[in-house]
């Protein structure tokens, strides 16, 4: 039985669904197992986090684009939750912080009120590095 506190921090750069899915899955699985989780949304990841983008985002990686309808269909049949629902569930069961990158917000004209409630704070790289120190870091 391992008691030491584990931590995973993810730089969510991509706004494509097939990359946001593992973000939701890793975040929720880690949170459920007692890991501290930090999600830092930047660039296209931040764009995908906008309230008006969450539901309507159907973009997947270019090279697999032709599979998008089949994947959407399979997820519906599996009754699989969308990635942002997994992030919300992660926050319910564990210690999960969701951060938005301030530079991207300015660059893309995203205001705080355009982001969902589950975003904890608007931060920069120093905050991310500080929070990520000593844990696993992923760039997705």
């Amino acid at each position: 039985m391992s008691q030491d506190k584990k931590k995973v921090s993810i730089i969510v750069f991509s706004g494509q669904l097939d990359k946001l899915m593992p973000v939701g899955i890793i975040a929720s699985g880690a949170a459920a197992s007692g890991w501290e989780v930090n999600l830092f949304f930047t660039f296209w990841g931040l764009n995908a986090l906008r309230k008006d983008m969450l539901e309507k985002n159907t973009v997947i990686s270019k090279e697999f684009e032709s599979y998008a309808p089949a994947i959407m269909d399979a997820m519906k049949k599996m009754n699989y939750p969308p990635w942002f629902e997994l992030v919300k569930q992660a926050k319910e069961v564990g210690e999960v912080k969701v951060f938005a990158c301030s530079t991207t917000m300015e660059m893309m004209g995203v205001k705080r009120e355009m982001l969902p409630e589950f975003v904890d704070d608007i931060v920069g790289v120093a905050t991310f590095l500080d929070r990520a120190e000593g844990g696993i870091t992923l760039f997705i």
Binding site: I25, S28, G29, A31, A32, S33, M78, N79, Y80, P81, L86, Q89, E92, V93, G94
Partner: peptide, 14 residues
């Protein structure tokens, strides 16, 4: 039953 990863773990944790 019928849930996929990470569903069962999430429900267990809750």
């Amino acid at each position: 039953r019928g849930m996929y990863c990470p569903g069962p773990v999430m429900e267990t944790a809750k």
